[in-house]
Simulated assay, not measured.
Amino acid sequence: MNILELQEEVKKYAATIGIDKIGFTTAAPFHELRNRLVRQQELGFQSGFEEKDINKRTEPALLLDRPESIIAIAIAYPSRMENSVRGKKGERRGIFCRASWGTDYHIVLRERLKLLEEFILARVPTAKLRSMVDTGELADRAVAERAGIGWSGKNCSIITPEFGSYVYLGEMITNIPFAPDEPMEDECGDCTLCLDACPTGALIQGGQLNAQRCIAFLTQTKTSIPEEFRAKIGNRVYGCDTCQTICPKNRKKYNMHQEAFEPEPELVKPILEPMLDLSNRQFREQFGHMAGSWRGKNPIQRNAIIALAHFKEEAAIPKLMEMLLNDQRPVMRGTVAWALGKIGTTASYEAIQAALETEEHADVRLELEKALENWQEETHI
């Protein structure tokens, strides 16, 4: 079959299986990206979730024998929900970022890439193909940018004219020499709204992110969140959308057409306090189909505690007191100590004093002592 004819067929088929954008690029190494990744590594700006071998992230030939091209795909996800729910005193709610609404995007994109593979193999049985989504070795954004899916914005997201930056990305390396598409011109211009709005200053400059300061990263860690970032997290239990919601290119980009990503309001804006009682099994049953569940319940519960402190939710004090005395996880006890200090009632400080009498873990004791010290300074005791 003629390659150009096949390429047109692939494009048409992609649209029928819910792929919103498709582009093609060569399998040449990503030399410029390599330089940026080395610099990020030197600066300590990486999250640690990335593929550690920079060569694999930038050289497709290490991932497939004699590759000729890469197919990039994008699937849009919604930026707002219908029938949203509101929290209230006594029933405060957290929020999962938009990239965790609906079915885990890894599942959805892998399914559609598999259909695309089957379509190509039915026409070219000798084709070699390797697909990946997010957790694969290649850098999704670099592939999408070079394949003309969109441009790489200052907020470190691919921005598309049609869907803004609310798109999931995936790619397929192949030995079929498809014709490459042209990259898009950068349309960010002089705008710096995302840099200015970032709550923690994680966007160092346009296109450069210090992941160690990024709320989206911090909410996924399993250790105690550094104190300087806790108040910035607000009621986020997973991820952060600030640099996207502020972007002018995302105005009126609602992207409500993908049924798989339709949000369930009670899940994406869960009531916080009940989350603290979930067992591992209950957490998986409720949230396991969402992308935000991938790190398990512990980070989400820690973030829920921080969110309750954000609201100064006095109704949660009995539950937090119980956790402070009985929870087996030092990270939770330490976070609770900080949260009770922020809520700042007499009852919360009495709980801190009581816990100090029995707490043996050094890090938790430090959190308790700091909270007590702050209270004493504020009340002039």
Rank of each mutant, 00 (worst) to 15 (best):
P78F: 09
E91R: 15
H106V: 10
F45D: 09
T245L: 01
S165Y: 08
E185A: 12
E68C: 02
G201T: 01
R34Y: 15
I22Y: 05
I204C: 04
N175C: 10
N155M: 13
V143E: 05
C198P: 08
A355K: 14
K128F: 04
R295G: 04
N35V: 15
L278W: 12
E350I: 15
S293G: 09
C191W: 07
A347T: 14
R146L: 12
F24M: 00
E137F: 15
E171I: 04
I75G: 01
N155A: 13
D104E: 11
I120F: 11
L113A: 02
M184V: 06
K89P: 00
C188Y: 08
P330D: 02
K253R: 15
L209C: 02
E5P: 00
V143L: 03
Y13V: 01
L267K: 15
T58E: 12
G344A: 05
G170W: 07
A74E: 12
N210M: 03
E350Q: 15
E313H: 03
P199A: 13
G201F: 01
G136K: 07
L64W: 02
Q220R: 15
A76S: 14
S165M: 08
F45V: 14
L113H: 09
P270L: 06
G90T: 08
A304V: 09
T219L: 11
V268I: 10
D181I: 03
I246T: 14
G90C: 13
K12D: 10
P226R: 04
D140F: 05
I71L: 12
A127K: 11
Q258T: 07
R66G: 14
A362F: 05
A74M: 05
P199I: 08
L276F: 11
I19F: 03
L340G: 05
